[in-house]
Design a protein around this nucleic acid. Structure first.
Lengths: 242, 242
DNA sequence: CGGTGAATTGATGTCAGTCAAGGAGGGTGG
DNA sequence: CCACCCTCCTTGACTGACATCAATTCACCG
């Protein structure tokens, strides 16, 4: 039922910093339970002030903000190992919402326990800050993409980043991984129209770089994708897992 | 020469959380010195791993990332009270650079002292995380702007945000504040061309909303600006000062 | 079998980028 | 004191990338 932190499948991945057994024990105490949600479920909502924070054990979702005029900006995609609700945890209010794109299972923590972490486990508190800093880093990259890359480069960049993440999480095998989003989600993430996103995906397919269809992403040429997106093709930075 | 934290002029502003005298004493110990830089000086550079971190005492600057192909994305503008170098502090590497747009004076802290903060002053460590979280919030807003607003709305949004910040920092008097950037900086922040930014500023002037010339920003109609930018016209959230 | 949500494709329009030229101010050196 | 650069701002003309509109197909489902 409830996955024991000692057997957490994520912690075995090498993208994540190793944890001492005492740290794991602390996390176990800190973990309130597990939550399973269906695809489409809102997990945290913008402006909300939920008493719980989560880390993703499995499944995928997305963070997004809505404008009054009905438009939507996808902030980023949520993958296993991601921590959700840090903003609510420290600032008392979410400034974006998070929703599930597939079934997800989440580890649930009590928001108030964050204080306890800062008082009793400075190393873990440091890790929280690390996560926030790395999040800032990723948002900066995204900003660079929206501001400076054209549609083809932007889509290439997005698929490349997703592929690297998938690889580091063991979701990808032989250049193939599940990618259960709609084209509209990618369009909203890159500030492009659905139609243009579709046509741009077509170009990447024609160029034999990547194919995304029926919720499956196939990377045919990582190097070419990276080159087009003008990014390095190196592995993502190791990071803490909460 | 060196401003004593006990007399820090910024701490008196109500945007910042009040600090107990013991907290102020700790910050004093933590502060290594003060640095004055000229306009145009790079303070931290992308990929760098500086041993120092800073908070801005006076002056303005900007954070930016560069692409290989010579383009530039301005991440945001740096104002008094801003903390610089958190990424280097926790992750060991800056993912954007920071440079001065005017003369600036910076409080200098030792990067290694961050650890000490986490061990000895959990409340201050919490504040650091708060800062990271609020930064994430701002980047999310910017992302929304680049992705979903057209040029006129985007420029209005940027000027509105700058004006709110200026007001909360006491830089603005009667709708007028110094804004010592180039139009190119704003263009690079919004992902627009210099030419189009210029023309868009012209439209805002014609509409009697705001005028920005000769490094001075004049807001003629905050409400109208907020409405055009589709944002609330409320005061910025109070935040910690490090 | 109708209905709904997603992907696809073509036709048309427009917002913003690019190119080009000129002007205003400030600094430097003859 | 004037000629010269240099940086930044300004404006007009042209172009193109991307948005919008519209129609079709397909899969899934009650």
């Amino acid at each position: 039922m409830k996955t024991d932190c000692r057997n957490c499948p994520l912690r075995r991945l090498e993208v994540f910093h190793p944890m001492s057994t005492s740290e794991v024990d602390f996390m176990r105490k800190f973990k309130m339970g597990e939550m399973a949600v269906e695809a489409g479920t809102p997990i945290l909502s913008e402006g909300g002030n939920a008493p719980q924070i989560y880390t993703v054990l499995s499944g995928m979702g997305l963070r997004a903000k809505l404008t009054e005029c009905g438009r939507r900006q996808v902030i980023n995609f949520v993958f296993p190992g991601d921590f959700i609700g840090l903003q609510a945890g420290v600032m008392g209010e979410m400034t974006h919402s998070v929703e599930a794109s597939t079934e997800m299972t989440l580890c649930v923590f009590d928001r108030k326990a964050i204080w306890q972490v800062f008082r009793e486990h400075p190393e873990r508190a440091f890790d929280l800050t690390w996560l926030a800093a790395i999040e800032e880093h990723f948002l900066g990259e995204t900003l660079l993409t929206l501001g400076q890359r054209d549609a083809l480069q932007a889509v290439a960049w997005a698929l490349h980043r997703i592929a690297r993440r998938g690889l580091s999480l063991g979701l990808m095998e032989a250049g193939v991984m599940p990618l259960p989003y709609r084209q509209q989600d990618l369009a909203d993430a890159l500030g492009l129209s659905l139609v243009h996103t579709n046509k741009t995906l077509g170009k990447l397919r024609d160029r034999q770089l990547a194919t995304w269809a029926e919720s499956v992403l196939r990377i045919h040429d990582v190097g070419g994708l990276a080159e087009l997106a003008m990014v390095e093709n190196d592995a993502p930075m190791r990071r803490p897992l909460i």
